[in-house]
């Protein structure tokens, strides 16, 4: 599903964000990406999102070199990916309902379908009764649940998560992890960046460790 082939990313002043990164992830895998701050976790996610392109090497998603996706086709590529970030990235002037519905609204989906779908995910994430609130009135955990519902609602084949539990207390973190596990059981590939060691040990999944832009280990714990 995902293949990094000798990927280099160098920022200005010769800062090597990534150096010769090689790994593959199969369809349906749940993989953690870990390492200290600045190790290159976010850069890898940005490359997968086509926010950035590698300076050398290639990134394949579904056997397609994503560096070559044209600007015109880029939005359609991104519709196959769900994202969840540490800082939620919600639209604060819209309701919970509108935030979750966003990926469907931009594809001009039928209204009734959107309503049913959003209600389904509001139930799944336990946000019942909060549909009409704006994110200002939600706790950190609830905000992240909105972001998760938004990422999951299109049934993407790949979900990228960048420290989604970073701002949350333990209880909310576990609730959220459970949601990722569930969607993974349904076949969605997940790449989950975190430096929460406890999480890595308890989850018992494949872990790719990064340090200073290099892969230092890739193993199942």
């Amino acid at each position: 599903m995902i293949k990094f082939n000798h990927v280099f990313k160098i920022y200005e002043k010769n800062i090597k964000a990534l150096e010769d990164i090689n790994f593959s992830i199969s369809k349906g895998e749940f993989v953690f990406l870990t390492g200290p701050s600045g190790a290159g976790k976010t850069t890898i996610l940005n490359l997968l999102y086509r926010e950035d392109i590698p300076d050398m090497g290639s990134v394949f998603v579904n056997n397609e070199d994503i560096s070559h996706i044209s600007d015109r086709k880029l939005p359609f590529y991104r519709r196959n990916i769900g994202f969840v970030f540490q800082d939620f990235k919600l639209l604060f002037d819209r309701t919970v309902f509108d935030n979750i519905a966003l990926p469907l609204v931009i594809t001009k989906t039928e209204k009734k379908f959107i309503k049913n779908k959003v209600e389904e995910y509001i139930n799944k994430t336990g946000l019942c009764g909060k549909e009409k609130l704006t994110p200002w009135h939600l706790s950190g955990g609830e905000k992240q649940k909105v972001a998760i519902a938004r990422a999951f609602i299109t049934n993407p084949s790949l979900i990228l998560a960048d420290e989604p539990t970073g701002n949350l207390d333990d209880e909310s973190s576990w609730e959220i992890i459970k949601m990722f596990e569930e969607v993974n059981k349904e076949g969605t590939t997940i790449l989950f960046a975190t430096h929460n060691k406890e999480l890595l040990q308890k989850m018992n999944k494949r872990v790719i460790r990064l340090n200073k832009g290099k892969v230092i280990s890739d193993e199942s714990i």
Binding site: Y77, R78, F83, L102, I106, T107, R150
Partner: peptide
């Protein structure tokens, strides 16, 4: 955010 969710 609009770009991330794939808005044209």
């Amino acid at each position: 955010i609009f770009k991330m969710v794939g808005a044209t």
